[in-house]
Structures are given as C-alpha cells and as structure tokens.
C-alpha cells in the first residue's frame, strides 16, 4: 500500500492553490481554442514579455502582504513607474547605460523605498494601507514631475529585449532571477518568521521573532522584486512612462487575490502569485481575441473589477469557516 500521508499533508498545505490551478487550466484550454497562436514559439515569447512585469509585481506584493496587518502595497504601480522614469530620464539621460548600473539602480531604489515604507509603518505606527495610499499619491505626482509625458529612450542593449521573438530571452532570465530570489528566500528561516508574523503577530513577537526585522525584510524583498518588474516593464514599453505603470497596482492586487493569497496575512507564495498573474494575463489575452472594438478598454476594466470582486468573495468563503471555528 502506498503511504498517502505526505501527499495529503501537501494537499492540505496548498488548499488555496486549487482555485487558481483550476482557473489556469480552464483559461489555457480557452486560449488554445480561441488563439492557437499563443502556443507557438513567438507566441510564448511575447507572452513572457508581456506577463513578466505583472508576475514580478505580484510576487513583490506577496511578502509584504504575508507580513500581515492588511499591508497591501497600493503604491507598487507608481513605484514601478518611478523606477521606470528615473531609469530613462536620469540614468540614460546622463549617459549611465551599463547593465550593472541599471540593475543596481532598479534594485536599490525599489528596496530603499520599500524599506522606508516599512520604517514608517513600524515606527510612526500608521496603518500600512494609509502609508501606501499616501505613497501612491506622492509617487504619482513625483513621476509626472520627473517626466511630464511619456518618451525617452532605453539603453541600447535593452531595446532588443522588447522584440519578443525567442522564448529564451533576457526577460525570461530576469523572471527566473526573480523566482530564484524567492526560492532562496523560502529555504531560509526568515520565510517561517514571515509566515508566523503574518499569521499572528502577537504570537510571533512574544515567541522571540524579531517582528520588526521581519517586516523590514519583507519590504526589502518586495522592493527588489519591484526593481526587477520595473526593468521588465521598461524593456516592454522601450521608453519611460509616468502614468502607465500606475495601472499595475490594481492588476497585481487582483492577481495576488486570484492566486489565493490572504490579504490579511500569513498565507501566500510565489506559485500562487505566478499563477494569479498568468491567469490575469490569459484573461486579458482572451478578451483581446474578441472584437470589442472601442469597448475593449472598458471590457478589460469591467472584467478586472469583476474578477477582483469574485476572487475576494471566493477567498472569504474559503476562510470563513475557519474563522468561525476560531471563535
């Protein structure tokens, strides 16, 4: 007889992934029917290019959300945009175009800004949502001040990234690098600290977890992933754009919820977030195959809104019985 116990415990731990996996399969089938072109080499390459910023942005939200206190980073889109416009306007504008400089800048700015937010959350003790809300406003304004309208050029080596002709592309490597960072992170004890802090901060604190360090670490990790997302985004649009990146906030939060993460903390992971982001991508891809004409933008908007509503409700229905049991 086969021992099913490890399998069952694996299932139990990943209960929250059932819905995103099922949705992913359904969407893949639908995509295969509506748009077989997606499954060609260039189709996949294009998909990677388009989906990479969203995947990385969603992954960036994951550790921050996992740290609890309802800390959804509403500022993730504008921060991504901030890195994008500063890269184009300041670095390229000043002639600093080497890949090392560009990557270092993106990772540093993302991490530093997120750590700053963490410090405000911890020491000023303002609710995370408010901190990121004010960040959203601040960064959106700053982005427009740095670059009033879209334009500029990316470093020469990056222009080729945006072609999206072959699967094995630099964007894929950046994506893999992001996943590798995540994988290393889950191997450390820090991952456990993060989960426990998010699940019950008081328990973690009294049990000797350095919860402040954990929160800072979560933001640091998230910030680095925002940096990678910004690089992929810059490669995708091949220019600087002060406004467009702002839309990543809602998309990434939707993808996060769609991937089964709990917005109240403790539960979440890269697999769910990647699946959520892929599902988002597939949905917009599928919507694009219908000829909505001038409705297309609105159709996307309404579907994203509805998906967010529905996945939040599903999340609640899944966790509600447990909360009941707790009382």
């Amino acid at each position: 007889m086969i021992d099913t116990k490890p399998f069952r415990s694996l299932m139990r731990r990943n209960e929250h992934l059932f819905v995103p996996i099922a949705l992913f399969i359904v969407l893949l089938v639908a995509a295969a029917l509506r748009s077989p072109g997606l499954f060609t080499s260039s189709g996949v390459a294009g998909a990677i290019l388009v989906a990479a910023p969203l995947i990385l942005a969603t992954m960036a939200l994951t550790p921050i959300v996992m740290a609890g206190r309802g800390s959804v980073d509403l500022a993730v889109g504008p921060l991504l945009g901030f890195i994008n416009v500063t890269l184009v306007q300041w670095l390229v504008g000043s002639g600093w175009t080497s890949p090392v400089t560009i990557f270092a800048w993106a990772l540093f700015v993302g991490a530093a800004y997120q750590v700053l937010q963490a410090l405000v959350i911890i020491y000023v003790r303002v609710a995370p949502v408010i901190v990121t809300l004010s960040s959203y406003l601040f960064l959106t304004g700053v982005n427009l001040m740095i670059m009033p309208r879209a334009g500029g050029v990316v470093p020469e080596w990056m222009t080729k990234w945006g072609a999206g002709t072959s699967i094995i592309s630099p964007v894929l490597f950046v994506l893999i690098a992001g996943l590798a960072i995540w994988f290393v992170f889950t191997r450390t004890a820090f991952h456990i600290h993060l989960r426990m802090t998010g699940a019950d901060e008081r328990m973690a604190y009294t049990s000797g977890v350095r919860t402040n360090w954990v929160r800072i670490g979560a933001h640091l990790l998230g910030g680095m992933l925002v940096g990678l997302a910004a690089i992929c985004h810059t490669a995708l649009i091949s220019s600087g754009d002060p406004v467009q990146a702002g839309t990543y906030t809602l998309q990434a939060i939707t993808a996060l919820v769609l991937g089964g993460a709990s917005l109240s903390g403790g539960r979440g992971g890269a697999i769910g977030s990647v699946l959520g982001a892929l599902n988002m991508f597939l949905i917009s891809h599928l919507l694009a195959t219908f000829n909505f004409g001038m409705f297309s933008g609105f159709a996307t908007q309404i579907s994203f809104g509805l998906i967010l509503i529905i996945s939040l409700l599903i999340n609640v229905l899944l966790t509600a019985p447990k909360i009941q049991a707790m009382r």
């Binding site: 456990i192 600290h193 426990m196 699940a199 019950d200 328990m203 009294t206 049990s207 977890v209 403790g266």
Partner: peptide, 16 residues
C-alpha cells in the same frame, strides 16, 4: 497564542 493557519510544527518552533 497560536497561529491557526500554520502547522503544529511551525507553532512549536516559532522564534527558535
């Protein structure tokens, strides 16, 4: 003080 969503092991070894 326990984290309901976490496993027994994690709840025991938290902070160690």
């Amino acid at each position: 003080l326990v984290a309901d969503e976490a496993s027994v092991i994690d709840n025991l070894y938290v902070g160690l």
